[in-house]
Simulated assay, not measured.
Amino acid sequence: MEAKETLKAHIGKFVSLTDEQFDYFFSHFKPLSFKKGQAIIVEGDTVDCEYFVISGCLKSFFINDDLKMFILQFAMPTWWASDYNALYNQTKATINVDCITDADVLALTSSDREKLCNELHTVEHFFRWRTNRGYVAAQKRLLSFMNNNVKYRYEELLKLYPELYNMVPKNLIAAYLGVSRETLSRL
Protein backbone atom coordinates (compact mmCIF):
# COMPACT_ATOMS: atom_id res chain seq x y z
CA MET A 1 0.00 0.00 0.00
CA GLU A 2 1.51 3.32 -0.92
CA ALA A 3 1.88 6.23 1.51
CA LYS A 4 -1.23 8.11 0.43
CA GLU A 5 -3.50 5.08 0.84
CA THR A 6 -1.93 4.20 4.20
CA LEU A 7 -2.57 7.68 5.58
CA LYS A 8 -6.06 7.79 4.07
CA ALA A 9 -7.00 4.45 5.65
CA HIS A 10 -5.56 5.57 8.99
CA ILE A 11 -7.33 8.92 9.21
CA GLY A 12 -10.49 7.39 7.73
CA LYS A 13 -10.85 5.16 10.80
CA PHE A 14 -11.52 8.27 12.88
CA VAL A 15 -12.89 11.05 10.67
CA SER A 16 -14.49 11.43 7.25
CA LEU A 17 -12.90 13.59 4.60
CA THR A 18 -14.03 13.99 1.01
CA ASP A 19 -11.49 12.93 -1.61
CA GLU A 20 -10.81 16.61 -2.30
CA GLN A 21 -10.28 17.37 1.40
CA PHE A 22 -7.98 14.37 1.81
CA ASP A 23 -5.93 15.31 -1.26
CA TYR A 24 -5.49 18.79 0.23
CA PHE A 25 -4.57 17.27 3.62
CA PHE A 26 -2.08 14.88 2.01
CA SER A 27 -0.46 17.66 -0.03
CA HIS A 28 0.98 19.07 3.22
CA PHE A 29 3.02 15.94 3.97
CA LYS A 30 6.55 15.31 2.74
CA PRO A 31 7.59 11.68 2.10
CA LEU A 32 10.99 10.78 3.54
CA SER A 33 13.01 7.58 3.66
CA PHE A 34 15.56 6.69 6.31
CA LYS A 35 18.02 3.83 6.74
CA LYS A 36 18.32 1.57 9.77
CA GLY A 37 20.16 3.46 12.51
CA GLN A 38 19.67 6.85 10.88
CA ALA A 39 18.74 9.73 13.20
CA ILE A 40 15.60 11.76 12.50
CA ILE A 41 15.77 13.99 15.59
CA VAL A 42 18.86 14.47 17.74
CA GLU A 43 18.87 16.02 21.21
CA GLY A 44 19.46 19.76 20.78
CA ASP A 45 17.81 19.95 17.34
CA THR A 46 15.10 22.44 16.46
CA VAL A 47 12.00 20.32 15.86
CA ASP A 48 9.42 21.46 13.32
CA CYS A 49 7.87 18.17 12.16
CA GLU A 50 6.04 15.13 13.36
CA TYR A 51 6.36 11.88 11.46
CA PHE A 52 3.70 9.39 10.39
CA VAL A 53 5.27 5.97 9.90
CA ILE A 54 4.41 4.24 6.63
CA SER A 55 6.84 1.33 6.98
CA GLY A 56 9.56 0.29 9.37
CA CYS A 57 10.00 1.08 13.04
CA LEU A 58 11.30 4.15 14.88
CA LYS A 59 12.26 4.67 18.49
CA SER A 60 12.04 7.80 20.61
CA PHE A 61 14.62 7.75 23.39
CA PHE A 62 16.62 9.67 25.95
CA ILE A 63 20.17 9.01 27.10
CA ASN A 64 20.92 10.16 30.64
CA ASP A 65 24.18 11.49 32.07
CA ASP A 66 25.28 7.92 32.90
CA LEU A 67 24.79 7.02 29.22
CA LYS A 68 21.82 4.78 30.00
CA MET A 69 19.16 4.70 27.27
CA PHE A 70 15.47 5.05 28.13
CA ILE A 71 13.04 4.35 25.31
CA LEU A 72 9.86 6.39 25.44
CA GLN A 73 8.16 4.98 22.36
CA PHE A 74 8.42 2.56 19.50
CA ALA A 75 6.62 3.82 16.39
CA MET A 76 5.45 1.18 13.94
CA PRO A 77 3.38 1.68 10.76
CA THR A 78 0.45 4.10 11.26
CA TRP A 79 2.02 5.50 14.44
CA TRP A 80 3.31 9.04 14.88
CA ALA A 81 6.59 10.15 16.42
CA SER A 82 8.39 13.37 17.29
CA ASP A 83 9.77 15.25 20.27
CA TYR A 84 6.38 16.73 21.08
CA ASN A 85 7.65 19.00 23.84
CA ALA A 86 10.10 20.61 21.41
CA LEU A 87 7.53 20.65 18.59
CA TYR A 88 4.69 22.27 20.56
CA ASN A 89 6.78 24.56 22.79
CA GLN A 90 9.37 25.55 20.18
CA THR A 91 12.25 24.44 22.40
CA LYS A 92 15.31 22.37 21.52
CA ALA A 93 14.86 18.60 21.34
CA THR A 94 15.42 16.74 24.60
CA ILE A 95 14.87 13.30 23.07
CA ASN A 96 16.18 11.50 20.02
CA VAL A 97 14.22 9.72 17.31
CA ASP A 98 15.95 7.21 15.07
CA CYS A 99 15.27 4.18 12.92
CA ILE A 100 15.34 0.62 14.25
CA THR A 101 14.78 -0.57 10.67
CA ASP A 102 14.72 1.12 7.30
CA ALA A 103 11.68 3.40 7.42
CA ASP A 104 9.42 5.42 5.18
CA VAL A 105 7.58 8.28 6.85
CA LEU A 106 5.42 11.27 6.02
CA ALA A 107 6.60 14.49 7.66
CA LEU A 108 4.12 17.19 8.64
CA THR A 109 5.36 20.56 9.87
CA SER A 110 3.83 22.14 12.93
CA SER A 111 2.73 25.18 10.91
CA ASP A 112 1.02 22.98 8.31
CA ARG A 113 -0.72 20.98 11.04
CA GLU A 114 -2.06 24.20 12.57
CA LYS A 115 -3.10 25.50 9.16
CA LEU A 116 -4.96 22.26 8.39
CA CYS A 117 -6.65 22.28 11.80
CA ASN A 118 -7.84 25.85 11.23
CA GLU A 119 -9.16 25.09 7.76
CA LEU A 120 -10.68 21.62 8.26
CA HIS A 121 -12.66 20.93 11.42
CA THR A 122 -12.48 17.17 10.86
CA VAL A 123 -8.67 17.33 10.75
CA GLU A 124 -8.64 19.30 14.00
CA HIS A 125 -10.89 16.61 15.50
CA PHE A 126 -8.52 13.88 14.29
CA PHE A 127 -5.45 15.53 15.81
CA ARG A 128 -7.29 16.18 19.10
CA TRP A 129 -8.39 12.54 19.20
CA ARG A 130 -4.84 11.37 18.44
CA THR A 131 -3.33 13.60 21.13
CA ASN A 132 -5.86 12.38 23.69
CA ARG A 133 -5.16 8.77 22.77
CA GLY A 134 -1.42 9.34 23.15
CA TYR A 135 -1.94 10.95 26.55
CA VAL A 136 -4.02 7.98 27.73
CA ALA A 137 -1.38 5.50 26.49
CA ALA A 138 1.39 7.42 28.28
CA GLN A 139 -0.67 7.49 31.49
CA LYS A 140 -1.33 3.72 31.28
CA ARG A 141 2.37 3.05 30.72
CA LEU A 142 3.35 5.19 33.71
CA LEU A 143 0.81 3.46 35.92
CA SER A 144 2.06 0.07 34.75
CA PHE A 145 5.61 1.09 35.73
CA MET A 146 4.36 2.04 39.18
CA ASN A 147 2.14 -0.98 39.78
CA ASN A 148 3.47 -3.97 37.83
CA ASN A 149 6.63 -6.02 37.89
CA VAL A 150 8.88 -6.37 34.85
CA LYS A 151 7.54 -9.79 33.89
CA TYR A 152 3.98 -8.47 33.76
CA ARG A 153 5.02 -5.37 31.76
CA TYR A 154 6.95 -7.53 29.29
CA GLU A 155 4.03 -9.93 28.79
CA GLU A 156 1.63 -6.98 28.45
CA LEU A 157 3.85 -5.35 25.82
CA LEU A 158 4.06 -8.52 23.74
CA LYS A 159 0.33 -9.15 24.08
CA LEU A 160 -0.51 -5.63 22.89
CA TYR A 161 2.18 -5.46 20.18
CA PRO A 162 3.31 -8.97 19.19
CA GLU A 163 5.02 -7.65 16.05
CA LEU A 164 7.58 -5.87 18.24
CA TYR A 165 9.10 -9.20 19.26
CA ASN A 166 10.43 -9.84 15.74
CA MET A 167 11.07 -6.21 14.76
CA VAL A 168 12.88 -4.84 17.80
CA PRO A 169 16.13 -6.20 19.31
CA LYS A 170 15.78 -7.47 22.86
CA ASN A 171 18.18 -4.85 24.27
CA LEU A 172 15.79 -2.14 23.03
CA ILE A 173 12.77 -3.90 24.53
CA ALA A 174 14.74 -4.03 27.81
CA ALA A 175 15.43 -0.28 27.56
CA TYR A 176 11.72 0.33 26.96
CA LEU A 177 10.87 -1.71 30.06
CA GLY A 178 13.56 0.04 32.11
CA VAL A 179 15.62 -3.10 32.80
CA SER A 180 18.90 -4.61 31.67
CA ARG A 181 19.12 -7.07 28.78
CA GLU A 182 20.18 -9.72 31.30
CA THR A 183 17.04 -9.17 33.39
CA LEU A 184 14.90 -9.47 30.28
CA SER A 185 16.70 -12.71 29.33
CA ARG A 186 15.79 -14.23 32.69
CA LEU A 187 12.12 -13.67 31.94
Rank of each mutant, 00 (worst) to 15 (best):
Q90K: 09
V42L: 11
G178M: 14
E182M: 04
Y24T: 06
F29K: 07
H121A: 14
K115V: 07
D23C: 00
E124P: 00
T46D: 15
A174T: 04
L67I: 04
C49T: 11
T183Y: 10
F52C: 09
G134S: 03
D83S: 07
F62E: 11
I54P: 00
N147M: 15
L142W: 11
L116P: 00
A174R: 06
D48V: 00
F29I: 08
L158G: 01
A175W: 12
M146R: 13
F52I: 12
H125D: 13
V97E: 08
D66M: 12
C49K: 08
W80S: 04
I63M: 12
W79Y: 13
Q38C: 02
S16F: 14
P169T: 03
N147A: 15
Y165F: 13
S60C: 06
T78W: 06
V179T: 09
T109C: 04
L17K: 10
I71D: 14
K13E: 11
Y51M: 01
E124C: 07
R113P: 04
D102T: 05
C57D: 01
F25N: 08
A107P: 09
R113C: 06
W80R: 00
L58W: 01
V179W: 10
H28S: 07
L187Q: 14
L187V: 15
E2V: 07
K92T: 12
K151V: 08
I54H: 03
I41E: 04
L184H: 06
G37V: 01
V150R: 09
F127I: 01
V47A: 13
D102R: 01
R128C: 09
G44A: 10
D23P: 00
N85G: 13
Y135D: 00
F62L: 15
D66W: 11
A93E: 01
V136K: 08
F26M: 13
P31D: 09
I54R: 09
P31F: 13
N118P: 05
D19Y: 11
A75P: 02
E124L: 01
H28N: 12
N171G: 02
S185M: 04
G134R: 05
F74N: 05
E119N: 11
S111C: 06
A137I: 12
W129G: 08
D104N: 11
Y84F: 15
N132Q: 15
V136A: 06
L187A: 13
S60V: 02
T91H: 03
L143G: 14
Y135P: 01
Q139K: 09
D48L: 02
F126M: 03
G12I: 00
F145Y: 15
M69R: 13
